[in-house]
Design a protein around this nucleic acid. Structure first.
Lengths: 209, 209
DNA sequence: GGAAGCATACCGACCGGTTGGTATGTGTCA
DNA sequence: TGACACATACCAACCGGTCGGTATGCTTCC
């Protein structure tokens, strides 16, 4: 009874299709007909639920926030008691999901904002909300880790949280250019090492002074 | 006599226009007519020099490599004797040019590869060439810095060089989402601090063991 | 030197297919 | 019975690309 209704409506199917197709083709290159075909619905259904293609883009960005929010909330790294372990666990988790087809592990809103930032403010804002709200969850653990480990730094938890997102978004671009996730995983390792160095946590085989 | 001829041909004007317009609108959203209008040439001229729109994209990526290659070759950071200073100077230089309109400081090939990696292999390869050849120049200084400062690490000069490009590309995405360069500059600072920590070079107000 | 012969650079009207979007019909369920 | 959730048919603008034609050289041969 708490479950609303698992029946997949046309709207739902279109949003799921948008996540797949836009990450493969980009936003501009994805046509309304592409989305209808991938979702198995007709154009009438599309424009019944969304007044314009841009309106679907905004809804897709919000849907993406919802999906990824649940996905990361369920991830195991939250179990760690030390907030620094949670931050490092988050990076490790992000690294581990860099697998398979490029379109499957890259970010919808990172892709969309590149094409729309200058001409579609509503879509850009939706993408910004998605990235920023995710970064804020990382920021909470970083801030707590700074308190716990008595870090007095000239950088803020917020800037480091956004930096983690920058590294990941950039890693996606390299993965697209090189056709696979390997290089992206190496960037994630550099990011993990950076945070370990910031918090003075050494790892095996570390080369210090 | 060494100067060939500074006369701007239609081909040249179209490539210059592509750098501007594609960085603003993205590749798919940019029409051939858009490019012709921006370049002040006709459609006939466009298809005289490029068989297809995709062929222009490849030429524009190569042209971008050429332009940025010259731009960074002339930059002042190469003067430093210590290769580590050159690497840090490079990062600082990249940070300093994060100014003005977003379309003016972001990367053509990073934008294009997002839209084309899955469907236009020739364009993706051209973008990869551009990113990788630039990274290789950074890699040379990093490798020399590792030798000079006797760094025995579990990371390679190549992976760190590509990581610098990932950070910058990701910073561009955040700049687009947030509508300005401020957040990108903060990521560049994190990158600089990471390299300083890797090489054990402390800065003022540093909190070390 | 000058005319023939040809290549390059460019023009802009045009074409067929595609695109986002609309108008209208139809089945279903409260 | 009427509102909702679609399906079908259609439209006008737009898009990448084509095509016939022109203007301006540059070469070659007499």
């Amino acid at each position: 009874m708490t479950t609303p209704t698992p029946k997949p409506t046309s709207r739902q199917k279109l949003l799921d299709a948008a996540l797949r197709v836009v990450r493969e083709q980009g936003y501009s290159a994805t046509t309304v007909d592409d989305l209808c075909r991938a979702a198995g619905v007709t154009k009438g259904a599309f424009f019944h639920h969304f007044a314009t293609k841009d309106e679907l883009a905004v809804a897709a960005a919000d849907y993406w926030s919802e999906m990824t929010g649940g996905f990361f909330a369920d991830a195991p790294y939250h179990q760690h008691e030390d907030p620094l372990d949670r931050v490092l666990g988050y990076i490790e988790f992000r690294k581990q999901i860099l697998q398979g087809r490029v379109a499957d592990f890259t970010c919808l809103v990172g892709t969309m904002v590149q094409e729309t930032y200058d001409s579609h403010p509503a879509i850009r804002d939706a993408c910004d909300r998605s990235i920023s709200s995710h970064a804020e969850k990382v920021e909470v653990d970083i801030a707590e880790a700074m308190r716990r480990h008595k870090i007095n730094a000239d950088w803020t938890a917020k800037s480091l949280a956004l930096h983690t997102q920058a590294v990941l978004q950039g890693a996606f671009i390299l993965a697209k250019a090189k056709g696979g996730p390997d290089i992206a995983a190496q960037s994630a390792e550099h990011l993990r090492r950076y945070i370990e160095l910031l918090f003075g946590r050494s790892q095996k085989g570390d080369a210090n002074v």
